[in-house]
Simulated assay, not measured.
Amino acid sequence: MAAQIAELLSSPWMYALVMVSITLDVFVPFLPSGSLLIVAVVYAGKHDGTVTEMLLLLVGGAVASTLGDNLAYRAIEPGAGPVHRFLARMPRAAKVNDRLRDTLQARPISTMTFARLIPTGRTLATAVAATDPDMPRARFQLASAVAAAVWAAYTVALGYLNALLFNTSWVSVVVGVAAAFAFGTILARSRRAVALTSS
């Protein structure tokens, strides 16, 4: 069984699955893209992964994340009218949307980066940016690319650090995934997140 798992984790299909998951989790936020990236990094770190392999995971994660954001932006942008009509009937949701929109306009890079590190934040920030007529696509693309690079670097570093600290791969994975979840939860409950999402 262990040999089969090792074969699966070393397969190019595993890396393809990780990149597809990262691309699509902006549409389906419960996809475990961060966890899969940590698994890939831990496995590479435990099995003589080279610096080149780690860099490929980092760059691939950042590119896949940016691609997903831009696909979502293009998909959501034409629906801005219905979204605004919906928000007009939901004052509390509209207030949260307006607050996040204002923050994205004032500090797009830091806001997208912060959102990328909390659960469902990437999806929400992308949706708000895509339905904001005052948010130029080029500005969103830059903010998305920086946020994706920060997220990928953080996730790869977390996986690699746990691969170095623990002797067993499964312990490294469990601790790495738990640490990422805990950090995201703490950020989601931080004063900044509450200020953005409270009505």
Rank of each mutant, 00 (worst) to 15 (best):
R101F: 08
T23Q: 07
F30I: 15
Y15E: 08
A153I: 00
T23L: 14
G34W: 02
A179Y: 05
G68C: 10
E7Y: 01
T111Y: 04
V83D: 00
D25W: 01
L124M: 13
A193K: 02
V59R: 07
W170I: 12
A94P: 00
L9K: 04
Q105W: 07
W13Q: 11
V26L: 10
A157M: 03
T131A: 09
V175P: 10
P82Q: 07
N97G: 00
Y73K: 06
S198N: 06
A143P: 11
V18L: 11
S110W: 11
S35E: 13
S172F: 14
V171I: 14
Y15A: 07
A143D: 13
A138K: 02
V194C: 03
Y73L: 15
T131E: 03
L8P: 04
V146T: 10
Y160R: 12
L57H: 07
F30T: 13
S169F: 12
Y43T: 11
I109V: 13
R189S: 03
P136W: 13
Y160H: 13
V28G: 04
F27V: 06
E53I: 06
A152P: 06
V26A: 09
F114P: 07
V194K: 05
P12K: 08
M14I: 02
I186N: 00
G60S: 09
A188K: 11
D132A: 14
A75Y: 07
P91Q: 01
A94N: 03
D48Q: 14
Q4I: 03
L37A: 08
V42W: 11
S144Q: 08
N70F: 05
A153Y: 00
L17I: 14
A148C: 10
G79K: 08
A147Y: 04
A72G: 06
V150C: 04
T126D: 13
